[in-house]
Amino acid sequence: MMRIPCPHCGPRAQSEFIYERTLDSVVPLNAPSQEAMAKLFTRNNPRGVDDEIWRHTYGCRAWMVLTRHRVTNEISGCRAIGPEALP
C-alpha cells in the first residue's frame, strides 16, 4: 500500500484515497469536440511517471495531484488543486 502525502492532512494510508483520472484528461469546458474526444477516451499511459488526480475521500475529501511512478509507485510530489487550477 502507498502512503500518500496529502497536502492538507499529511501522510495517510492509500486506503483513504480514490483515484480519479490523469491530470491531462480533464476536459476543458470550451474544448472543441476532437480535443474533448481525445481527452475522454485516450491516455498517455506511460510506463513511468504521470500526474494523476486523486481524492482524499475518507479524509479531508479534497482533490489533489499526485506525481507517481507507475512501476515503482514512488511518489515525487503531491499538490492541492482547486477550481482555479483546472484548465
Binding site: 481525445a38 477516451f41 485516450t42 491516455r43 498517455n44 499511459n45 506511460p46 510506463r47 507507475r70
Partner: peptide
C-alpha cells in the same frame, strides 16, 4: 498491459489504461 507503452513508441495514444 504494455499496449500503451509499445503504441507510444509509434506516437499513438490509446483508449487504454494499464
Amino acid at each position: 498491459g504494455n499496449s500503451g507503452h509499445v503504441a507510444g513508441l509509434a506516437g499513438l495514444k490509446l483508449p487504454i489504461e494499464s
